[in-house]
Amino acid sequence: MLTNATIDSALRLALDEDAPWGDVTGEAFVPDEASARAALRAREDGVLAGIEVFARAFGLVDDEVAVDLRSSDGAPFGSGDVLAMVRGPARAVLRAERIALNFCQRMSGIATLTRSYVDAAAGRARIADTRKTTPGLRAFEKHAVVCGGGHNHRFGLSDAVMVKDNHLAVLAGEGADVSEAIRAARARLPHTTVIEVEVDRLDQIPAVLDGGVDIIMLDNFSPARLREGVELIGGRAIVEASGNVTLATIGEIAATGVDVISSGALTHSVRAVDLGLDLSLEN
């Protein structure tokens, strides 16, 4: 969840990284009394995310900067649209500009890409993100996925049980029975905790189902194998597809009958949307 505290913490780190000893250019060339007016303008089509983060960056630099939001997170925009107006001391506006844009451009890029995936799935499956996020910025990136119409997978390792291939390798090395291991874990866990198991072969599914899992992830399955997996599971668990999910493949994957499609590309391979801050001095 993207909280005000998380936003302020990340923005302060970014602002300190950008100007640890002040903005030497602004202080040398911009008069202290100068005021500026600036428009946040889209230079291409997209879906907005991070507009509140954009506004907060200016407020942390100088609370005399006023930001008038013209759009909201999750809203589509077209090239040339004005998404916000910024007014205040010119030095402060210039000091916060790059940080504000960095967050809003990247988050909008994630929201825009997510919307493309959601549209391609055409309502046949839920589109979800993964933990393949920028370290320290997970809350921002997962918020952006939701702005694009997607859903969040677990936020982190503390949220849910997800048994992946390396966990299964450890169990196999110990000679453990997968079904028994799942049942034993269920007995120890709170009743509100779901258990998901990743499989990469059809012959792994019966033992996982016998253990009583809630979700089965079919990892790197072809569309034909996904259909077989969905039929074999037969509604006894939520079916998630993952691996090699792209805009070119997601429609075919969604048509196999899976319930969820998760893709790390939503956050780890995104291109920032082109937004600009067009500034002019006020008299």
Score class of each variant (00 low, 15 high):
Ala125Phe: 14
Cys104Gly: 05
Gln105Ala: 14
Ala90Asp: 02
Arg115Leu: 09
Gly123Asp: 11
Gly123Gln: 07
Gln105Gly: 04
Asp129Val: 00
Ala128Leu: 02
Ala111Asp: 12
Val118Asp: 07
Ala125Ser: 11
Ala90Pro: 04
Leu101Ala: 10
Met107Lys: 04
Met107Gln: 04
Ala90Ile: 02
Thr114Ser: 13
Phe103Ser: 15
Arg131Gly: 03
Ala128Gln: 00
Phe103Met: 10
Thr112Glu: 06
Arg91Ser: 02
Gly136Arg: 12
Leu113Ile: 11
Cys104Val: 07
Tyr117Arg: 15
Ser116Val: 14
Ala92Asn: 06
Arg91Pro: 04
Cys104Pro: 03
Phe103Asp: 13
Arg115Glu: 12
Leu113Val: 12
Gly136His: 14
Asn102Gln: 15
Ala111Gln: 08
Arg115Val: 10
Val93Asn: 06
Ala96Ser: 12
Thr112Val: 12
Leu94Thr: 06
Arg115Thr: 14
Ile110Phe: 09
Ile99Asn: 03
Pro135Ala: 14
Ala121Pro: 03
Phe103Tyr: 13
Arg138Asn: 01
Ile99Gly: 01
Ala100Arg: 01
Ala122Met: 09
Gly136Leu: 10
Arg91Val: 01
Ala92Glu: 08
Pro89Gln: 05
Arg106Leu: 10
Leu137Cys: 08
Ser116Ile: 07
Leu101Tyr: 06
Ile110Asn: 11
Leu137Ser: 06
Thr134Gly: 08
Val93Tyr: 05
Lys132Ala: 12
Arg138Glu: 00
Ser108Lys: 07
Ile127Met: 03
Arg124Phe: 13
Ile99Leu: 09
Ala111Ser: 09
Ser108Arg: 13
Arg138Phe: 02
Ser116Trp: 06
Arg98Lys: 10
Thr130Tyr: 01
Arg124Ser: 14
Gly123Val: 11
Ile110Val: 15
Ala96Pro: 10
Gly136Asn: 07
Pro135Ile: 06
Met107Glu: 04
Arg138Ile: 00
Pro89Phe: 00
Gly136Pro: 12
Ala92Ile: 04
Gly123Ile: 15
Lys132Gln: 15
Ala120Trp: 03
Thr133Tyr: 12
Pro89His: 03
Ala92Pro: 13
Arg95Ala: 06
Gln105Ile: 03
Arg98Gly: 11
Ala96Val: 09
Arg106Phe: 02
Arg124Lys: 10
Ala121Gly: 04
Arg95Gly: 04
Gly109Lys: 13
Val118Met: 12
Glu97His: 02
Met107Asn: 03
Arg131Trp: 07
Phe103Ile: 09
Ile99Gln: 04
Thr112Asp: 09
Ala100Val: 06
Asp129Pro: 00
Arg131Ala: 06
Gln105Thr: 13
Thr112Gln: 15
Glu97Asp: 03
Tyr117Gln: 09
Ser108Phe: 14
Arg91Met: 01
Arg138Leu: 02
Thr114Asp: 06
Val93Gln: 10
Asn102Met: 14
Ser116Pro: 11
Phe103Asn: 08
Glu97Val: 00
Leu101Lys: 10
Glu97Trp: 02
Arg126Asn: 14
Thr134Met: 09
Pro89Cys: 01
Ala111Met: 15
Ala125Glu: 09
Ala122Gln: 08
Gly88Trp: 00
Ala111Glu: 07
Thr133Pro: 12
Met107Trp: 01
Ile110Thr: 15
Ala92Tyr: 02
Ala125Cys: 08
Thr112Ser: 12
Ile99Lys: 04
Tyr117Thr: 08
Ile99His: 02
Ala90His: 01
Ile127Cys: 00
Ala121His: 02
Lys132Asn: 08
Ala100Met: 07
Ala96Ile: 04
